[in-house]
Structure formats: structure tokens, C-alpha cells
Computed example of a mutant assay.
Amino acid sequence: MTLDTRPLAIFLMGPTASGKTALACALADRYPLGLISVDSALVYRGLDIGSAKPDAATLARYPHELVDIRDPAHPYSAADFRTDALAAMARQHDAGRVPLLVGGTGLYFRALQQGLSDLPEADPALRERIGAEAARIGWAALHARMAARDPVAGARIRPGDAQRIQRALEVMALSGRTLTELQQQGQRQRFPWRVLKLALLPADRTLLHARIAQRFEAMIAEGFLDEVQRLRALGNLHADLPAIRAVGYRQAWEYLDGQGTATNFRDRGIYATRQLAKRQITWLRSELDARTFDPDRQDPLPASDVALAGFLEKPIR
């Protein structure tokens, strides 16, 4: 039997509002871990309240890499994340810590571990033309066009996911091939880390939905709309940027544009967050090699202790 000598890493995954950050911090108190965020909203500076970003005191005690690393006017891709995450993991390893990657962005976890296909680089002029066409006929129509040529991508990408529809159409226009064809031909190398996957997977969505609603209401009370007003005042942001399309921010931006009432904004924000959690849970169930814990039925810390102690072959501090 060949000995696996790859360095160790831990993935801590789960839907929004499942308690990932609290568990990661608790584990960091007990093991020599270096925390790395896997969250497509936390990378952006100024997206604090609506992204449920850990507060300054938490980040001071438990530093997270890949938080507040990008201006919201500048999109951040899965490829950007993979490059940054691999560098962060190497830094933590060199410092004598085991990298613990914590978050709920499945696309980032998948890109990190499985790699990315060799796709053509973005073409700003082409993107602008696709965006202008979307403004004229709608993203749903462009999704239908994309799905007619690439049904696999059409089934995977939601009709409202403007960023991924735009990228799929861009790839087809630049390469003459579909996104699926290029992804399937990509050669993936073995991931250079041995990974323990932990997943917080609530079985009762009623309890998760209640926590989502409570947290969204707390965000509003904390000044979420004021935060979005400050972002709007920067003058260089718009509704089609990935940062502003983040769950909660899109609904707040539209409300401040005069769409709907305050109650409607609240309801739409909670609904969008629940839909995000549903997608995250669906993805997590495909991670068959993950050790899952239901945070509503058991304290995940003791079970995680057992898993980490065996994986790291280190005692609890």
C-alpha cells in the first residue's frame, strides 16, 4: 500500500446559518489550525452586515484568510479563489498550522479540489455586448439560447444566474465549443492535499429557515440598508456586479431603487436566503466523502473532535 504523504487540510462546509464560523473558531481553540474563508461574499470589502461577516473582534482572535481582499467593483472568480486559496494553504502549512477552509460556496470548494478547465479569458467587449442584449431581451431568453446548444450547462445553470449565463455564452463565442465540452476535456491533476471533509447538514429545514429569518431581521436592525446606501454612494457599483448580486444585497439594492415596500424587501431577502440554503444542501449531499453532522440534533464539536484527532493524530489542546 502506498503511503499518502500529502499535507493535511480540512474542509468545513454547510449551508448559510448552520453555525460553520462558530464551529471553526471552537476547533481553532483546540487544534493548530489556520482558518481560510470559502465565501463568495466575504471576499469583498464593505459587504459586512449582509454577508454575516465575522465581526472585528472575532477576526482579531481568529484570523481568516481571504476575507476583505477585493473591492466590490472588481469581480472575483472561482479561478481567482483557487489561486488565492492554494497560496493561503501553503502559508498556513509553512507556519505549522493545518489549513481549515470554512464556508458555504460550493463552487469554490469544487474549483479548489477538482481544478478548472482551460477556458478562454474574459473578453470585456463581448461581455458588454452580451449584457446589452440581456438588458433588451432578458437573461431568461439568453439562458434558453445557451441551453439549446449546451443542455448540460442549461440544466446546471439557473435562468436567473446572469454571471454564469454570460460566461457560458462568452466561452461559446470565443472558442466555438460549449462550456460543457471544454470542461469535460480538461485534464485534472490529483489535488496536492489530503482532505478531511466535515459538513453541517440540518435535517429539519424548518429550524434552519427560522434561523435564516431571525438573522436577516437582525441584519436589518443592525443597519444593513445603511450599509448598502454607503456602497451605492461609492458611485462605481451597479446591480450586475457579482458583489451586488449576492443574496440580500440584490434585494436591498432593488428596494433602494424604489422597488417594493420594506416588508416586501424583508420577505424577498429571507426567501432568497432560503433558496441559497436549499442549493447549498443539495450540493452537500453530493459530497459523499464528507462526514455530516446535524447541528440541530447534536453538538458538532465533540463529533468533530473525534474526526480531527484521528485525522491529525494530535491531542486536543
Rank of each mutant, 00 (worst) to 15 (best):
R6C: 07
L12K: 08
L12I: 08
P15Q: 05
G19K: 06
K20H: 09
T21Q: 09
C25F: 04
A26M: 07
Y31T: 03
S37L: 08
S37K: 12
D39M: 02
S40K: 03
G50N: 03
S51C: 05
S51N: 05
A52K: 10
D55A: 13
A57E: 05
L59G: 06
A60T: 13
A60C: 06
Y62K: 07
V67F: 09
D68R: 15
R70K: 10
A90Q: 15
A90G: 05
A90H: 13
G104R: 01
G106C: 08
L107P: 00
R110N: 15
L112A: 07
Q113E: 15
Q114Y: 12
S117I: 00
L119S: 06
P120F: 10
A122S: 14
A122D: 09
P124L: 01
A125R: 15
R127L: 13
R129H: 07
A132G: 12
E133L: 13
G138Q: 03
A141E: 09
R145I: 01
M146W: 05
A147E: 00
A147P: 11
A148E: 10
A148P: 08
V152R: 15
R156D: 03
R156L: 09
P159I: 01
A162H: 07
I165E: 04
L169K: 00
E170S: 08
V171L: 06
R177V: 02
T180D: 11
E181T: 11
Q183I: 01
Q184K: 09
Q189Y: 05
Q189C: 10
P192Y: 14
V195Q: 12
L196C: 08
K197N: 13
L198E: 12
T206F: 01
L207P: 05
H209M: 02
R211W: 08
Q214S: 13
R215G: 10
R215F: 07
A221K: 13
F224N: 04
F224L: 15
F224W: 14
L225P: 04
E227W: 15
V228I: 15
L231N: 03
R232M: 07
L234F: 00
A239Q: 10
D240T: 12
D240Q: 09
R245D: 00
E254W: 00
D257P: 06
G260D: 11
T261P: 04
R266S: 14
R266V: 11
D267V: 12
I270T: 07
R274A: 00
D289R: 14
D289C: 13
R291E: 15
F293E: 01
F293I: 04
D296G: 06
D296I: 04
D299Q: 10
P300W: 06
P302E: 04
A303Q: 15
S304I: 03
S304Q: 05
D305T: 04
A307Q: 10
L308F: 08
A309D: 05
L312I: 08
E313V: 07
E313Y: 06
R317C: 10
